[in-house]
Amino acid sequence: MLSRRRFIQLSTGAAAIGLSTASYGVGIEPLLRLRVADYQVHPQRWPAGLTLKIAAIADVHACHPWMSLAHIETIVAHTNALQPDIIVMLGDYVAGHRYLIGRIEAPEWAAVLAGLKAPLGVHAILGNHDYWDDHSVQRAGHGAPAARRALEAVGIPVYENVAVRLSKDGQPFWLAGLGDQLAYWPARRFRPVPRIGVDDLKATLAKVTDDAPVILLAHEPDVAMRVPSRVAQQLSGHTHGGQVRLLGWSPVVPSRYGNKFAYGHARTACDVIVSGGLGCSIVPVRIGVPPEIVQVTVSAALAVMS
Rank of each mutant, 00 (worst) to 15 (best):
V112E: 12
G18Y: 11
V253M: 04
A16P: 11
A16N: 10
A77V: 14
A147F: 05
R149W: 06
V112T: 14
M89N: 05
V231N: 04
G91L: 05
A187W: 10
A153Q: 14
G91V: 03
V137K: 09
Q40D: 12
S281I: 06
A70F: 10
L113W: 00
Y93L: 01
L113D: 04
R256V: 12
P221L: 08
A14F: 13
L10K: 10
A262R: 02
N259C: 02
L82I: 07
L2V: 15
R286Q: 05
A16Q: 11
L19T: 13
T79Y: 05
L34I: 09
G25Q: 05
H42K: 13
D92V: 08
A95D: 04
W174D: 01
P43R: 02
V198S: 06
Y93P: 00
P119Y: 10
H64S: 07
W249R: 08
H78Y: 12
P284A: 03
T209W: 03
I273P: 02
V41W: 05
V198W: 05
R35W: 09
R245D: 03
L90Y: 02
G13W: 12
I287D: 03
K207H: 11
R226A: 14
G49D: 07
A114Y: 08
V36I: 14
E108Q: 15
L302K: 14
H129G: 03
M89H: 04
D59E: 02
G13F: 14
T209H: 14
E73Q: 15
R188L: 15
T204G: 01
G279H: 01
I196P: 02
L201H: 06
G141S: 11
Q181N: 10
P290C: 07
Y93G: 04
H123T: 00
V252I: 13
I75R: 00
P65R: 00
R149V: 13
H219R: 07
